[in-house]
C-alpha cells in the first residue's frame, strides 16, 4: 500500500474554486486520491468563518463549509496535529518572513497568518515523513521560497524605497526551502486530464484556466497558452 499524501489548501484556491463553481472538482479528485485535503484553522477563518458573516460571500463560504461536512476537506486534527503546534510554527515563520526584507533596518511585513500556517503544517508533515504539497495562488509566499531575490527587486522597484534582503536573510531563507507548491490552474489541468471537468467542449480547458485567472490566480497568459498546448 502506498503512503498517504496530503494536499494543503491555502485560502486562494478555495476562494477561486468557490467563486468559479469548481469545488465539485475537489470532491471528484478526492475519490481517487490516496490521502487527505487539509486546511488550517487560519485558512478556515479566511474562507469560511469570516465570509459567512458577509452577505456578499455567504454562499461561497457555505459551499466550503459543505466540503468540511463531507470530509472532502479536513482539519489537521484528523492527523493528530494540534492547533497549538501549528500556531507556534506559524508565528515563527511569520516573524521570520516579515523580517527578511528591510527598509533602513526595519522589517517589512509581507505575509500574514493563513499562508504561513500552510507552510507551518507542511513542515510538520514533512518532519513526520508525510509527503505533501501546498495549493496556493499567492505569489508572495511562493516567491519567498522559490525566488526571494525577485521579491526584493519588486518591492524595491515599486516602493522606490531602499529595500533589501536583511543580513540574516541567508540563514532565515533556509526555513523557507523545501516547500512545494501548485496553483489553481495546475489543479484544473489535472482534473481535466482525469476527465473530471464534465464540460464537453474543446474549449473547456482554456475556459476553465481563464476563469481561474479572472478570479485572482497568478497565472500568466503565456502559461495558459503553454498549458493549452500540453
Amino acid at each position: 500500500m502506498t503512503k498517504e499524501k496530503i494536499l494543503i489548501f491555502d485560502a486562494g484556491p478555495l476562494i477561486n474554486f468557490s467563486m468559479n463553481g469548481f469545488l465539485y472538482l475537489l470532491e471528484e479528485l478526492k475519490k481517487s486520491f490516496n490521502g487527505k485535503f487539509l486546511i488550517t484553522k487560519q485558512v478556515k477563518y479566511e474562507t469560511l468563518d469570516r465570509p459567512v458573516k458577509i452577505q456578499r460571500f455567504e454562499l461561497g463560504a457555505l459551499r466550503i463549509s459543505q466540503l468540511l461536512k463531507t470530509k472532502v476537506l479536513e482539519m489537521p486534527e484528523s492527523l493528530n496535529i494540534s492547533e497549538s503546534e501549528i500556531n507556534a510554527r506559524t508565528a515563527e515563520l511569520k516573524n521570520t518572513a516579515n523580517h527578511i526584507l528591510e527598509n533602513k533596518g526595519k522589517g517589512i511585513e509581507i505575509v500574514s497568518d493563513a499562508e504561513m500556517s500552510c507552510l507551518a503544517l507542511s513542515s510538520i508533515l514533512s518532519e513526520r515523513g508525510i509527503e505533501n504539497i501546498i495549493a496556493i495562488d499567492e505569489r508572495t509566499t511562493r516567491l519567498l521560497t522559490e525566488n526571494p531575490k525577485d521579491l526584493e527587486m519588486t518591492i524595491a522597484k515599486k516602493t522606490q524605497f531602499p529595500v533589501k534582503l536583511s543580513n540574516k536573510s541567508f540563514n532565515d531563507l533556509k526555513k523557507f526551502e523545501n516547500f512545494r507548491f501548485i496553483r489553481s490552474p495546475e489543479i484544473i489541468y489535472v482534473a481535466y486530464k482525469k476527465g473530471l471537468l464534465h464540460i464537453e467542449d474543446p474549449k473547456a480547458l482554456e475556459a476553465s484556466l481563464y476563469a481561474t485567472k479572472f478570479k485572482g490566480s497568478s497565472v500568466s497568459w503565456d502559461e495558459i497558452k503553454a498549458l493549452k498546448k500540453m
Partner: peptide, 12 residues
C-alpha cells in the same frame, strides 16, 4: 498587492 505584499496581508 502589486508592490509585493501578500493578498491576505493586504486584505488585513
Amino acid at each position: 498587492h502589486e508592490h509585493g505584499i501578500s493578498s491576505e496581508k493586504t486584505a488585513r
